[in-house]
Design a protein around this nucleic acid. Structure first.
Lengths: 342, 342
DNA sequence: GCCCCGATTGTTATCGGTCACATTCATGGG
DNA sequence: CCCATGAATGTGACCGATAACAATCGGGGC
């Protein structure tokens, strides 16, 4: 009548009983409260082990008004960038002892973001990271429910929320300057979708670099990240004779472009140089291997988490720079070379 | 002294007070309990709206011993397959009213999987989905802590846990039969890593199809999913004169192979046909566009969730087949054609 | 007209922790 | 030798919901 088959998991009381202390003392041990005698602490820890006790996160969160879970609002994680960012955040969170809960958005509009954050808030997440690469989403970040600590990734107009992102402008500059140094007169640009912030920043960086060098700025070609749009732009460029260098806003577009150029008999890099952005795993194995700009998504994840923890009043992990702009780097491969001699 | 600036979110008692009922009645309304008068229900719902009340998921989970969160153990979500699977699960979960919590694994060994599931169990998830494409992980699934409902994806030896996966053997058969129908004598195979179940099944399917057709079975080429391994295998094949068709275990390997063949002046599909697996977004824009086998990851997600809900004793969503093997489909593009005339 | 029953609603315990405060005990200053 | 002090520990309230059970009310059967 009093003994049970012990089917369910141990709770704090079981540990207390076994260790011969009160449940509160167990709680103190679990949270490294200073005033617990060493001998007592060890007795408790022994009981914890013996029962294979794991504190219930729900109860902890409910009582302590802080959970060890971080919410992530993500979008289009099939794309390499968002997927890698998500993974970087998960990794950083895990190291800091946090779990992560995700909500993927189908469309990135204001109400979607707000709704997603609400769903996460319902779960009492400690804070949220919003991967908001679109202008619309960035705007939404301003109208979030108060009281939820939030940081935003890949966005630079998120009201007063802390923002972490790769320095897209610098990335574009790396690409353009690389091509100019090779001797190209000017560099064309196949942009990403206009409502993506990263796309906008890369356009800005591209234009600024050309202007700084006093070069002619060709019209911007419009793309949508897809290989198809790169392919179409490639056909267009192949028609003209005056293009020697193209900077594509991402690697998939560059891939489509390589295909179009190849189809038209335009040689890369002999006739036209192509540079991409992202360094997707395939980049090194395209024909020809793609020169591209690499982004350090793990670093983005680390800085996000550091910023969020700071907002939560927890110590920042050591060694993570506070600067919100993560520097990208150029990876030179075979798709870029000097312009054809005339 | 009694009025507060109402800074914090409303809780069930606030709703009860405003609606003039007990908190229990509010709870009944929230959970569609039948015996609540319509008039009362409406009054409560009005109060809910007015206060913008959202029930606290932690408290709910604690009291009701069931949370509306599903845990996902994932691995290598940079790869297209795992990323798409994760997204499919998230989508299905969201539709069923569940949130998802993820733990990404760095290595897919037994203790890693067990630890991950424990971390999720700590959060009292309703159940877990383990994306376990490796043999080691599948084995681990057997030694999970009891009491956590779990289903496994892309694995077929998970003890007695329900398993959902794409029918890899059928996929391989589609690829091989397509090539044989085109007139090829036999089909070579560039496999994935030996410890991946999907890789093993694709090898099995490839071999079985060839044997069923009474064809010679060439030696298996070893790959590791990377474009590099495809590239290396491609160089090797280019050396031999007798290869007319290759079935690559994934699109990235096919990509590397296309590059190697192109470099060696081997024309695709005139000299050699290449078929991939996955239908990554880039596949349609390679040179030439890649014939490949498409997997329906959304369907995988839906079936996973349906199986898990069934385990939880909740109604299966309607219209989701119970069958654990999701059929893949062949996407024919330009990389496959008849063998060269001799 | 009385009693039983089902529909509706309220009261109290409970989930598994943390927090605030009380209690106990040994120590050291006056 | 007494009391203030602080370290170590225990007690009970509480977080915000659901579960179990009690209470109330109106109507049908005898």
């Amino acid at each position: 009548m009093s003994q049970q088959p012990a089917a369910r998991a141990a709770v704090i009381k079981d540990v207390a009983r076994l260790a011969g202390v009160s449940h509160q003392t167990v709680s103190r041990v679990l949270n490294d409260h200073p005033s617990v005698r060493d001998e007592t602490r060890e007795r408790v820890l022994r009981a914890v082990q013996q029962l294979n006790y794991r504190p219930n996160a729900l109860a902890r969160g409910l009582a302590g008004r802080r959970s060890r879970v971080i919410g992530v609002v993500s979008f289009d994680t099939i794309l390499h960038g968002p997927a890698a960012t998500l993974l970087g955040i998960e990794r950083a969170a895990r190291h800091a002892g946090y779990g992560i809960s995700i909500v993927a958005l189908e469309r990135l509009d204001r109400s979607g973001v707000v709704e997603a954050v609400n769903r996460l808030a319902e779960q009492s997440v400690a804070g949220v990271v919003i991967i908001a690469p679109l202008l619309t989403a960035a705007a939404a970040a301003g109208s979030l429910p108060a009281g939820v600590p939030a940081v935003v990734v890949e966005s630079d107009m998120a009201g007063d929320l802390p923002t972490i992102s790769v320095d897209q402008v610098a990335g574009a500059r790396l690409a353009v300057e690389h091509l100019l140094e090779l001797g190209h007169e000017t560099v064309w640009h196949l942009a990403g979708p206009k409502d993506w912030l990263e796309a906008r920043d890369r356009v800005d960086g591209w234009r600024a670099s050309l202007e700084a060098a006093g070069r002619r700025v060709p019209p911007v070609l419009a793309g949508d990240w897809s290989p198809r749009s790169g392919y179409e732009a490639g056909r267009e460029l192949a028609e003209r004779g005056d293009v020697t260098a193209v900077f594509c806003a991402n690697d998939q577009q560059a891939l489509g472009m390589l295909r179009a150029l190849h189809e038209r008999g335009v040689r890369v890099p002999e006739d036209v140089s192509v540079v991409g952005f992202d360094d997707i795993p395939e980049a090194a194995y395209l024909s020809p291997p793609l020169t591209t700009v690499r982004q350090d998504f793990d670093e983005v994840g680390r800085r996000c988490l550091a910023a969020l923890l700071e907002l939560l009043g927890v110590d920042r992990p050591l060694g993570v720079p506070r600067h919100p702009r993560v520097p990208p780097s150029l990876v030179v491969r075979a798709s870029s070379g000097p312009p054809p001699a005339r």
